[in-house]
């Protein structure tokens, strides 16, 4: 499984670096009024698509089960102590700041990149602490790999061999917010460096309830 990571990393770099690095250079502070615009990452090639995963309540789901609503999606893992909770809180708060109708049109989604440790039970307890409306998605290693490939997500376990064995490893991973349209098509990709306010502003203009 590990030998796939370099390929995924290359796919990821090809897909994202052009737009993303340029945005970093132009916006060192990230607090400017243009944060919303500059934090939209330009994507080349196809992103997203169908998926077959297990929802936090143990039910098998696919992309079409979510048709009719926007999905605001974040890939992470529940053992992640800093970047994931911070990003997920931001995502939830950005949605909460929207007018009620727009809020209801968006389902916040957490997708694990760590299917070994993040079982549906763990994911259920995790997402509930962020927002009762948040959906958590996990699945088999193969299902998650396919999902990550389609969404060009990079993740790599780090730590000593013992950490991998004892399930105390950490994971390096890409951190973006994905907006998926009600028809299941990819809409926008936001840097997780976006401010909560800028994400709210973007969602206000994009989401049509």
């Amino acid at each position: 499984m590990r030998e796939h990571w370099p390929a995924l990393l290359i796919a990821f770099i090809v897909a994202f670096t052009g737009g993303f690095l340029a945005y970093q250079l132009q916006n060192p502070t990230l607090d400017g009024a243009d944060n919303a615009l500059s934090s939209v990452v330009q994507v080349q090639g196809k992103l997203g698509g169908d998926f077959h995963l297990i929802r936090h309540d143990g039910v098998e789901v696919q992309a079409s089960d979510f048709h009719g609503q926007y999905l605001l999606m974040y890939f992470g893992y529940s053992y992640c102590p800093d970047i994931c909770p911070t990003s997920l809180i931001q995502m939830v708060r950005a949605v909460h700041q929207l007018p009620e109708k727009q809020q209801q049109a968006i389902t916040p989604v957490f997708v694990t990149v760590d299917p070994v440790r993040d079982t549906p039970t763990e994911i259920a307890a995790y997402v509930a602490d962020f927002d009762p409306r948040m959906v958590g998605l996990g699945g088999s290693v193969e299902q998650i790999q396919a999902m990550m490939q389609n969404y060009k997500v990079f993740a790599r376990k780090t730590g000593a061999e013992e950490d991998i064995k004892n399930l105390t490893y950490l994971i390096d991973h890409s951190s973006f917010f994905y907006l998926i349209k009600p028809d299941g098509q990819f809409s926008h990709l936001f840097s997780s460096q976006i401010t909560t306010e800028a994400l709210t502003r973007s969602l206000t203009t994009i989401v049509q309830p």
Binding site: F12, I13, F16, T17, F20, L21, V41, P81, D82, I83, F154, T158, L170, D172, H173, S174, S175, F176, S191, S192, Q193
Partner: peptide, 13 residues
Amino acid sequence: LHQTVEDSGVFRM
């Protein structure tokens, strides 16, 4: 003591 480091959208601790 950890540091979260970002490189082109990939975060690592």
